[in-house]
Amino acid sequence: MTKTLADFDFETGEVLLLDKPLTWTSFDVVRKVKNTLRIKKIGHAGTLDPLATGLLILCTGKKTKEIDQIQAQEKEYTGTFRLGETTPSFDLETAVDMARPYAHITDEQITAATAQFTGLIQQTPPIFSAVKIDGKRAYELARTGQEAEIKAKTVEIKTFEITRIALPEVDFRVVCSKGTYIRSLARDLGVALGCGAHLTRLVRTRIGEYRVEDAFTLDAIQALRPPRPDSEASTLPGTTRSRHERPNTAPNRAGLQYFAALQADALAAKHLKDATEKSAE
């Protein structure tokens, strides 16, 4: 029999599979589940970027001791690369900064290019990542315009399969080791093909034997929300204190429209700057 949420003993310890919504940070999900179910001890076993969806594993109670073990297991992802355009973050979080022709690239060239990115490879993480540089997160430096050098590291790509080609879009399936950046894989494939590329969609489908098909949604978690204890109720007769929720208009809830707006603003600023510099010549 499949275990339901009502069967979980979160305080003692559980491994909970969540299907992370688009634009939510992993910390957002942890906080939401913690507050909704009133779990004292909870953490996640492997971050997902805000623009990625799919499997996020939460551990509660005594099961938090298994987080490192779960994080070390291989990961599987599916998603989409867009050829012919690059972005500083290697995904949709930042505006396109360069466009190149791609129509001449054949299906055979794309498939053949994946071979150099399988096995043990050296990969450089994105500057817009949580990698630490001199005690600071790389993305903190990147967002303030500071330059920083990130060292390459060894990762393992066990499977790099192209599942659909409809230029400029290329769909893929990747099975890889802990620490692999799919955004960097998009960048590297674009370099290999000579046209540039960035990641436009990413779904984590598996961590070890845990699969996204078995994951719960946040709506299902929300349905288990217990009533507030009497001690938290208002002292006014017939009233209760309302829970504080972040507004749906918050940036990390606005979806791809928010990031598209960011890109449009950044691109407009770049065009204005280029036009100003050209007129000053």
Results as ranks from 00 to 15, higher is better:
3 K>L: 11
7 D>V: 05
12 T>R: 15
22 L>G: 02
26 S>I: 15
41 K>G: 04
43 G>W: 12
48 L>E: 02
52 A>L: 07
54 G>Q: 09
57 I>L: 03
59 C>K: 06
64 T>F: 09
73 Q>D: 07
73 Q>W: 05
76 E>M: 10
80 T>L: 10
81 F>I: 02
87 T>G: 04
101 P>T: 14
102 Y>H: 15
102 Y>P: 10
104 H>W: 12
106 T>R: 12
110 I>Q: 08
112 A>H: 14
113 A>K: 08
115 A>F: 14
119 G>L: 13
120 L>M: 13
120 L>K: 15
123 Q>G: 12
132 K>S: 08
135 G>P: 08
139 Y>E: 12
141 L>H: 07
141 L>A: 07
141 L>R: 11
142 A>E: 08
145 G>E: 12
150 I>W: 02
162 I>E: 04
164 R>W: 02
170 V>C: 09
177 S>P: 09
184 S>K: 05
187 R>V: 00
189 L>S: 01
194 G>A: 12
195 C>W: 02
199 L>P: 03
199 L>C: 03
200 T>M: 05
203 V>P: 03
206 R>L: 03
207 I>K: 02
211 R>T: 15
217 T>C: 04
221 I>P: 03
225 R>A: 11
235 T>G: 10
235 T>R: 13
236 L>F: 03
248 N>V: 14
251 P>W: 07
251 P>Q: 04
251 P>T: 06
255 G>C: 12
256 L>F: 13
257 Q>H: 04
265 D>W: 02
265 D>K: 08
269 A>Y: 06
270 K>F: 14
280 A>L: 12
